[in-house]
C-alpha cells in the first residue's frame, strides 16, 4: 500500500520535474512545479512527517508558487513567448547539468535504500514545537530576524523606487 503510493507520488514528482525542465511556456513550467511540490508533500506524508507536508503545501505550493505565477502573469504578456537559446548556452547548461546529476547520483548511491517512516507513535508536532522553542530557540529567532530584514528591505526598495519616479517628471 505505502509502496504503491510511494511510486505514484515519485512518478508524479519525476514527471512534473521533467516537465519543469522541458516546457517552453513559463506558466506551464509553473504548473509543473506546482505538481512537483505537491508530490513532494505527498512523499512527506508517507514518511509520517505530517507537519512538514502541510508546511510544504502552505509555504511552497500555496505561497511561493502563487507569488511566482503572479509575477509571471504581470510580466509575461504573450503566452507563447519562449526563450532564444544560443548554442554556447546549451553547452554550458548541459555541462552544469551533468556535474549536478553525477553529484546527485553519487550521493543517492551512498545513502541507505529508502527513508523509513517513523513508527514510534510519537506526537511529532508537539516535539517539534518544543524543540523549536526550546533547544533551537536562538537559530529560530535569528531566522525570523533575517526574514524581517528582508521584508523591511523589500518595502524600502519598493517605496524608494516610487519616490524616484514621482520626483522625475
Amino acid at each position: 500500500m505505502t509502496t504503491v503510493l510511494f511510486y505514484i507520488f515519485a512518478l508524479l514528482v519525476a514527471c512534473s520535474a521533467i516537465g519543469v525542465a522541458v516546457s517552453r511556456n513559463i506558466v506551464r513550467t509553473a504548473v509543473c512545479l506546482f505538481f512537483t511540490l505537491t508530490g513532494v508533500a505527498g512523499l512527506y506524508f508517507l514518511l509520517n512527517a505530517e507537519f512538514l507536508a502541510a508546511v510544504q503545501l502552505v509555504v511552497y505550493a500555496g505561497g511561493t508558487l502563487i507569488l511566482i505565477v503572479f509575477g509571471v502573469m504581470l510580466t509575461n504578456r504573450l503566452p507563447s513567448a519562449g526563450w532564444d537559446v544560443k548554442p554556447w548556452e546549451k553547452t554550458v547548461a548541459l555541462g552544469i547539468g551533468a556535474v549536478l546529476a553525477s553529484a546527485l547520483v553519487a550521493s543517492i548511491l551512498s545513502l541507505p535504500p529508502r527513508a523509513q517512516p517513523d513508527e514510534s507513535g510519537a506526537y511529532p508536532v508537539l516535539e517539534l514545537g518544543a524543540a523549536l522553542l526550546g533547544d533551537y530557540l536562538l537559530p529560530f529567532e535569528l531566522v525570523s530576524v533575517v526574514l524581517l530584514v528582508v521584508m523591511i528591505g523589500a518595502a524600502y526598495l519598493a517605496k524608494g523606487r516610487r519616490r524616484n519616479r514621482e520626483a522625475q517628471p
Binding site: A54, A61, I66
Partner: peptide, 10 residues
C-alpha cells in the same frame, strides 16, 4: 485544512 485550502487559489 489551512494548507490544502491555500492550494485552491492555484
Amino acid at each position: 485544512i489551512l494548507a490544502i485550502l491555500a492550494i485552491e487559489v492555484m
